[in-house]
Computed example of a mutant assay.
Amino acid sequence: MSSHLLSVDSLSRDAVDHLMRVAARMEPIAQRRKVTRVLEGAVLGNLFFEASTRTRVSFHAAFCRLGGSVCDTTGFTFSSMAKGESLYDTSRVMSGYCDAIVMRHPEQGSVAEFAKATNVPVINGGDGPGEHPSQALLDLYTIDKEFIRRGKTLAGAHVLLTGDLKYGRTVHSLIKLLSLYAPMRLTLVSPPGLEMPRHLIDLVASRGHRVETRESLASDFADVDVVYTTRIQKERFTAEMSEGFSLSRDYTVDKAFLDGRCSDHTIVMHPLPRDSRADANDLDVDLNGDPRLAIFRQTDNGIPVRMAIFATLLQVEDQVEQDLRDVRWFVPATVGVDDARD
């Protein structure tokens, strides 16, 4: 693994497997059974110049769980970039304050440009429609855990990717990460104009995977192991695309779709946030409480995975297990009211 995590492209299969093993060792800490101070004294710069809840707080919590401290900044308004400061200057300045930096920026390639000015580890928290490597890693970790529960493996799996496949950076990173593994079947379903970029389809196909495109969800998906659906990224639309766009129910993943076209063992994932408004036709809330819905297990898995990323980049992954102690505060048996149904 390189000194930064900017793209899935920088990860080999061995590096991914290593991160998955480290993440598994972080579970007792992430689940609030154990405490470590292995990053005591270290400071994370959490720079988010685009809206975020889960990713920003998850990175913050992961660094704190390792014993570190976090300095946050959100949006352009209260940053020196609003005064015209360059990415290079911001990077160099923040590197003098922080031991690791997570950055989200609305422009594709901006985080890589930022990283050129520093030797401090930089993690891409999302660069416009580009990539989101840590999300892909936690998605893979989730799929693997869900498959273990069901006695399955990635080899030969059938994964359905649906929603905004053009601007959805999470699926760009995930499909590249999945392509590192044994051949599987990938089915792509998206509204017109929001198809997966051709170069990504060609890349995955060149690695021996079967890639199929369908026009809607109105067909049989009984053999699908994972449904990964994404929100329509209207904030990235051009004015021409926005005019008159509406998403029909043909692309909605809901209980009727899962019961009628999938199986009892299909796993449903979403990178969140999902748009729960009635006319959004995103992942439907009628699946709340359904054991096939893995979205909250997915978000929980963000903590051990991001802890593993920090521990590996800062080279303390082999020290964590020698620095554990029991928690001293109350921890509920389950953190969500529906968790017992999982």
Rank of each mutant, 00 (worst) to 15 (best):
L283H: 08
Q322C: 08
G41K: 05
H270C: 07
Y88A: 15
F59C: 03
E212V: 15
H4A: 07
S173W: 05
I309G: 05
Q135F: 05
S206L: 08
S219H: 11
R13Q: 12
M103W: 01
V337N: 11
S248M: 10
Q233K: 09
A136M: 11
T230C: 07
T299H: 00
T334L: 04
D14I: 09
T142V: 05
H60I: 00
V35T: 10
I143A: 06
N46T: 03
R37A: 11
Q298W: 08
Q322W: 01
S276L: 12
C262H: 06
A155W: 03
L154Y: 05
R185Y: 01
L324F: 04
Y97R: 10
E240N: 08
S110D: 02
K145R: 15
I175H: 01
V224W: 00
S134Q: 02
K255V: 05
V102T: 14
F245Q: 06
D264V: 08
Y251T: 09
R341A: 13
L247R: 15
D342P: 00
R32W: 04
G336S: 11
V285I: 13
A112P: 00
D202E: 15
L217H: 07
D202L: 12
H158V: 12
T170G: 04
G302T: 04
R325N: 08
D223F: 02
V305I: 14
S52P: 02
H265I: 02
G96H: 07
V159A: 06
T230E: 01
L39I: 01
P197T: 09
T187I: 06
P183D: 01
L174C: 00
H199R: 13
R150A: 14
S86V: 07
S3H: 14
T334W: 09
D338F: 14
F49K: 08
L165V: 03
K255R: 15
V320A: 04
R231W: 11
Q135D: 07
G208A: 09
P304G: 03
R207H: 12
L44T: 03
H265Q: 13
V335I: 14
L137C: 08
D259T: 10
D99N: 15
S91F: 08
D323G: 00
D323L: 00
A157D: 01
T213R: 14
I143Y: 06
H199S: 11
T187S: 13
R25D: 13
R149Q: 12
L188E: 05
K145Q: 14
S134C: 15
D14L: 12
T229N: 11
V335E: 14
F310V: 03
M94L: 15
D99G: 08
R328W: 08
V335H: 12
M26H: 05
S219W: 04
A115S: 14
Y228T: 04
K255M: 09
T73Q: 13
P191A: 11
E215G: 14
P197K: 07
T238M: 03
D254K: 12
V285T: 15
K234F: 01
D275Q: 09
D127L: 10
T142K: 03
Y88W: 11
A24R: 14
G151T: 06
V227D: 09
M81L: 15
F330K: 13
H172Y: 04
